[in-house]
Design a protein around this nucleic acid. Structure first.
Length: 867
RNA sequence: GCGGGCGUGGUGAAACCGGUAACCACAUCAGACUUAAAAUCUGACGCCGAGAGGCUUGCGGGUUCGAGUCCCGCCGCCCGCACCA
């Protein structure tokens, strides 16, 4: 009690401390990465943000995780690259321009400025000297260069594709602007229009993109699986059906792709897509079919409708011959469920073994013949009524296939039909098919990277010469009229043809913003280059990214496109790696309770006061005191108003508290619930660490027994070993638990252990904290009078000797239930442990004088006595 | 429909290879300090039971000396894809 005043260290003041240490780091330029640093490289990257206006808690979580890894790896002696940039093109800037009459560029750069300040207030160890914004000509110039390289290398094609067309606004709509089949602004029914557009030939790499997934061992299994399904590789047979007496103008054959050639003897019909050439040929003389095709097109738009859509078909009256029996013919339908984009746009229907075919056959009275008998079924009694059987089994009703397994039948059909000739080619061909389609990159938008080509009446499509890059967006832009402003801007569009010099027009499509984010990780390796997208040797050294961290929502598109770009960039000589991201981590969302007032309006958490009530909690509005209903916990979103502004949290608690809370509690891949109690708990811990560290330095009186010294040192080194392992595996919540444990041990040891042991343990505590709460750690480091900055300090070495105990306490089970403990020397052999256990009173009592049937001793773990 | 994941105290969770279920934290309760409150410190805290003890990882089975963990069958929730032949 005497030294109470002396021990009352001042409260840690994050508001003063955090900007101070940020200034110290900046002054020493601590986080600038040099490409010529000889140490081993480590590239940690978090998905760069879209500059929407302000950062949100999801950003705080994402960047806090990345910063832990970056600071830890730096302490471990790596040359760490940890850059930041802005995914700055996109629709919201255009929306803001339309709604608020602002310039998209100014709006975007203003947002970037705000968000940069916010990120800097988090104390992230970022190399800001490498900052890039994708909307800057210094970035998209190189993207245009690569587009031209890809074009030359045959990785870009141009063909027609459907777009969403708003007939009232006369504009192309992005998918997210189509709501329930209607334009988001006009409310008009959206039509599908064919437009000539640019495509990246990602399907050229479908096989490799599929196969290399297996090598991405540090990717979540879930993401690999999602990509695998998206790529959708299948092995099947393309087979040709000859038409039986086709009328004039109708093709003589139809090609069909099937993964189930084994079921060929169960075929009952053939169906082609509404867009299939055969359908068009028949429709030429059939107004009824024209109507049917038009109806199919109308249905195409609405996503939900497909779900419930009935299988509909139109009987063309044509018939095809069965490949194994020219006398056996099948009717040919045009069907609404057959997709022109997949396979050959035509299928043969085997109702017994495909649910869709069965629904269709039942509707049109086509019947079914089961040809695969499930294991354990009697073939004689096996019938299909309204549930198709798509499993394996033995072939029946299939002539020469009877008795075979489905796999054998597949091979037998393929072998025979590959050898059979129809006209001048084999009837069938084995073939691999993918669901993946080419990547349409054309967007009829202003705020994107211009596609660097010129359309000339006599020369056609002419690439912009590399020396003329970048093709910059016009500065002056107006969104008063609907449509793409670039199309109206003739001053910008009109250019001489680079090839013949005649009057020509610029391409007005800009690139999908996914292109911008498909190579930024490579640009970060040398963003100062003005003439080239990358320095290939430098890119080779840094890539792949060692640890990439971001949201699961990018599991497919962004990551797949980046994987495509890695391949394409290597092909055209810009270096990098086969795979862009060696390690991937997908973090969970930040969620929060929702609140609604009596009128049903959403209420912000900041306006809600929570009171503990009997058996639960009650919420009241801070201003009106009116009761507020507590709703379900949901993802923080503006629409539900359940957002907490990082600025507010940093202002009242500090960045360290926010970071600590985001890393504690929930496993990083799971959602974390933001609660006021949780932040306060984190904040209390900040103060506790500060008190402990200060108290240690203020106490030099107590002596400390060797046993107490050892206990504190053991606790510190145990925590060190555990945190090290858990950071490596990105298990930040476990790191937090270990650090709490160490703080508890340190507090226990305060009155007992000696100053050297306490100082050592406190130093370790501070270093463990440093990746997570860097400002607090820096302040504590100074209090401990340790030299330099903790941000520059090498990671401490674990003293392995301190991790092993001399004796171990083993649980003793009798018949699998824990009944006692036994403490034995660590090195005790099995016989010694067994003897010690059998001497225990509890064991004696249980055995009741008899010999045990069995004693299982698992060294260092457990003993089980079977009575 | 297809594919995948998850289910543990009041809450977030931990339990690595099948080996003491519940580390750590939040909340709650009690105590200390205080005129009081906050802050801080100490303690209790899975369930039943006064206790001894018994029970407990969504439910039901199985394998095993031993199962939260492995296998089979249900139930519930979540996510992704979706007419892909």
């Amino acid at each position: 009690m005497v030294r109470k005043d002396a021990l009352m260290a001042e409260r840690y003041n994050a508001k003063e401390s955090e900007p101070h240490w940020q200034a110290v780091w900046a002054e020493r330029d601590l986080f600038r990465t040099r490409n010529d640093d000889p140490r081993p490289t480590y590239y940690v990257l978090e998905m760069f943000p879209y500059p929407s206006g302000r950062i949100h808690m999801g950003h705080v979580r994402n960047y806090a995780m990345g910063d832990v890894v970056a600071r830890y790896k730096r302490a471990k002696g790596f040359n760490v690259l940890h850059p930041m940039g802005w995914d700055a093109f996109g629709l919201p800037a255009e929306n803001a321009a339309m709604e608020r009459k602002v310039n998209p560029r100014e709006w975007t750069y203003a947002n970037i400025a705000t968000m940069r300040t916010q990120l800097q207030s988090m104390g992230l160890s970022l190399d800001w000297s490498r900052e890039i914004a994708t909307c800057d000509p210094s970035y998209y110039k190189h993207q245009q260069r690569m587009f031209l390289d890809f074009l030359k290398a045959g990785l870009v094609t141009r063909r027609t594709a459907k777009v969403n067309w708003d007939p009232v606004d006369h504009t192309v709509l992005a998918n997210e602007q189509v709501i329930d089949g209607r334009g988001w602004r006009s409310g008009a029914l959206v039509e599908q229009r064919e437009l000539t557009q640019w495509f990246f030939r990602i399907t050229d790499y479908a096989q490799d993109l599929n196969d290399r997934l297996d090598t991405l061992e540090r990717w979540p299994e879930k993401v690999r699986l999602m990509q695998k399904n998206w790529i959708g590789r299948s092995e099947g047979l393309e087979l040709r059906f000859a038409l039986d007496a086709p009328p004039a103008g109708v093709p003589e054959e139809v090609k069909v792709y099937t993964t189930r050639p084994d079921t060929l003897f169960g075929a009952k019909f053939l169906a082609v897509a509404a867009d299939h050439p055969l359908a068009a040929a028949v429709a030429a003389t059939s107004p009824a079919l024209q109507d049917f095709i038009a109806a199919c097109h109308r249905m195409g738009t609405a996503q939900e409708a497909i779900d419930t859509a009935e299988k509909l078909g139109f009987d063309t009256g044509l018939r095809v011959r069965h490949p194994f029996d020219p006398a056996w013919t099948l009717p040919v339908y045009v069907a609404n469920f057959v997709l022109m984009e997949y396979g050959t746009g035509a299928v043969f229907g085997c109702p017994a073994h495909d649910q869709r075919d069965l629904d269709f056959a039942n509707k049109y009275g086509l019947g079914n013949t089961p040809v695969v008998c499930p294991p354990g079924q009697d073939p004689a009694s096996f019938v299909i009524t309204d549930t198709a059987y798509d499993g394996d089994g033995r072939m029946i009703n299939s002539r020469f296939l009877d008795g075979m397994t489905t796999q054998q039948a597949f091979a037998a059909v393929a072998d025979r039909l590959e050898a059979e000739i129809l006209g001048d080619a084999p009837v069938a061909q084995r073939r691999v098919q993918f669901r993946l389609r080419d990547w349409g990159v054309s967007r009829q938008r202003y705020w994107g990277c211009p596609i660097p080509v010129i359309h000339c009446e006599s020369c056609g499509v002419v690439p912009v010469p590399v020396e003329d890059l970048p093709v910059t967006l016009p500065e002056e832009v107006s969104f008063d009229q609907p449509g793409n402003p670039l199309e109206r801007d003739l001053a910008w569009r009109r250019v001489p043809c680079p090839s013949c010099g005649a009057d020509a027009l610029r391409e007005t499509d800009t690139m999908d913003t996914f292109v911008d984010s498909s190579w930024y990780f490579a640009r970060f390796t040398a963003p100062w280059l003005t003439d080239e997208p990358t320095d290939p040797a430098t890119a080779d050294r840094w890539l792949p990214v060692d640890q990439y961290i971001g949201g699961i929502e990018h599991a497919i598109l962004h990551l797949l496109y980046s994987r495509f770009f890695a391949r394409a960039m290597r092909k055209v000589g810009w270096g990098g790696a086969d795979e862009p991201f060696a390690g991937l981590f997908t973090q969970g969302m930040v969620v929060h309770e929702t609140y609604k007032d009596a009128a049903g309006a959403w209420v912000q958490p900041a306006e809600v006061r929570i009171v503990a009530a009997d058996g639960g909690r009650q919420a009241f509005h801070v201003k009106t005191d009116a009761p507020v209903a507590i709703g379900p916990i949901e993802k923080m979103s503006k629409s539900k108003r359940n957002v907490v502004d990082p600025d507010d949290i940093i202002a009242s608690y500090g960045a360290d508290t926010a970071r600590w809370f985001m890393l504690s509690d929930s496993p990083p891949e799971r959602d974390v619930i933001w609660t006021e109690d949780g932040v306060q708990g984190a904040s209390r811990f900040v103060q506790r660490v500060w008190r402990i560290v200060n108290e240690i330095t203020e106490r030099s009186d107590s002596g400390g027994s060797p046993a107490d010294d050892l206990a504190v040192r053991k606790a510190a080194h145990k925590a060190l070993a555990a945190v090290e392992e858990d950071i490596e595996r990105l298990r930040f919540n476990r790191c937090v638990a270990h650090i709490y444990e160490l703080a508890n041990s340190l507090q226990d040891g305060l009155g007992r252990a000696g100053p050297p042991a306490l100082a050592e343990a406190a130093g370790i505590l501070v270093q463990l904290l440093a990746p997570m709460m860097p400002h607090l750690a820096e302040a504590c480091w100074a209090v401990l009078a340790r030299p330099g900055l903790v941000a520059e300090a090498a990671w401490p070495q674990v003293e392995r000797d301190l991790l092993v105990e001399d004796s171990v306490t083993l649980p003793v089970q009798i018949n699998g239930k824990k009944r006692a403990d036994v403490t034995v020397p660590r090195e005790a052999d099995v016989a010694a442990v067994e003897a010690a256990v059998l001497a225990l009173e509890a064991v004696q009592r249980a055995l009741d004088g008899k010999a045990p049937r069995k004693v299982i001793v698992v060294p260092q773990r457990i003993v089980n006595v079977v009575a």
